[in-house]
Design a protein around this nucleic acid. Structure first.
Lengths: 231, 231
DNA sequence: CACACTCCGAGAGCACTGCTCTTGACTCGC
DNA sequence: GCGAGTCAAGAGCAGTGCTCTCGGAGTGTG
């Protein structure tokens, strides 16, 4: 079972989700294809397994990065208050951890944030738990930063009332205290972050942009940090 | 030939790119599968055809929307200067046109900005021309807006020198006059726009978020407009 | 008119896929 | 010892992309 996921990830890394084949996995296991169906009842279920595995792996990487930056700020400041690093540094850590993970595991990133594979829709009930972990952490960062974003001078925002109630419901679901405006800024920054990483992984900005991708991403992350922290 | 693309789009609309089958298209044409290979030499080439078709269609839709908003501002202002609408309105028009197109043609959007299909990488030489049309228009909008973004009070930006030269080269390639900072803001807004639309089309924010997706997208577009116009 | 040449589609076939069903071997508890 | 349960093998079905050959149309040329 664990070996199936392991082989699946290996095959994912060198082919891509569309080429993932249970027969090939069976060959890797030294069995015939039908035997694999003892353990996983369809190719879609195998994909689901790999998806939750990838979600968990990504979330672990992000958690590690956040723990590290928090620990670092503790040492630097010597305060020992447990408040951790400032929101901008935390967002930067989260974002760069995601970028790094995506660059190391492009096919798994594709599996999570690319096209839902060929008519297969991920069963929300089994992927949501791990799939929302890192987004929840980002919401917390945004809530932490977004108290009162220098109200007077900023462009006023109109949040649709329906969106507002929905966002506020989700904010309490994730256990963060913030108003809807922080929520829409966080969601936008989240989608933007996924977007710039996908653009990089999928090389949608051209081959030469990919060459300097790391530096370009750094600048873009700063802009998104502006968005999250209320500029 | 044109019928092949037509049937391909139809099949795309109801199945998705992964399920696109030249045999099925042959059935729609009333021929046997091998006959299709007279006109298109592989499934990948068929995909490429559909991709450039989709790029052109999207770009046309955006062009129409921009022409309309410019014409509207002419009538309203009665100035007849030919300057068109202000950058924020133009960006809004571009973004909502993209959103609308993506919602109407989710599978084609997926083809363009989702996962590159299963080991197939789009041949840049044939897709670039149409693929960059709408991004070029957005760069022009950003350049138009981004003269001097109230320098004193804003967070200073560090653009990597390598990124700077590359961006500036691309800016002149697209015929817009702007510095690298405008470029990185535009690229970020572009990737962000693609990201929020993909999040919506792929329903990555959950089923209930999809229900109020249109209003949520409107708020997000405003935030990205801030980014493009230098807040 | 007859020949040749090109274009188009049919059909068979290869290697591959996901998936199902049946059959047989092995192990464990009673 | 002997059922019961677990596991894998093997055959097979329907589907895929793609290649090859062959046989009819149409068309131009001597």
């Amino acid at each position: 079972m664990a070996r199936i996921v392991e082989l699946g990830n290996a095959q994912l890394a060198e082919c891509g989700a569309g080429e993932l084949s249970v027969r090939e996995i069976a060959r890797g296991l030294g069995m015939v294809s039908s035997a694999v169906y003892r353990y996983v009842c369809s190719r879609d279920e195998l994909l689901t397994l790999l998806i939750v595995d990838a979600y968990a792996d990504l979330a672990d990487a992000v958690d590690d990065a956040l723990a590290e930056v928090d620990a670092g700020s503790e040492v630097d400041a010597g305060s020992g208050t447990g408040a951790g690093a400032d929101p901008r540094a935390r967002f930067r850590a989260l974002a760069t951890a995601m970028v790094r993970w995506a660059v190391v595991h492009p096919e798994r990133w594709t599996l999570l944030y690319g096209t839902p594979v060929s008519g297969y829709d991920a069963p929300a009930e089994s992927t949501n738990a791990d799939g929302t972990r890192v987004m929840a952490r980002m919401l917390a960062i945004a809530a932490d930063a977004g108290g009162a974003p220098a109200a007077g001078e900023r462009h006023e925002m109109h949040v649709d009332p329906e969106v507002q109630t929905l966002l506020e419901a989700h904010l309490v679901e994730f256990g963060v205290q913030a108003d809807a405006e922080v929520g829409v800024r966080a969601v936008t920054a989240w989608s933007g972050l996924v977007g710039i990483i996908s653009a990089h992984v999928f090389r949608q900005l051209g081959a030469d942009a990919a060459a300097v991708g790391e530096q370009l991403l750094a600048s873009q992350v700063e802009l998104l940090a502006d968005l999250v922290t209320g500029r």
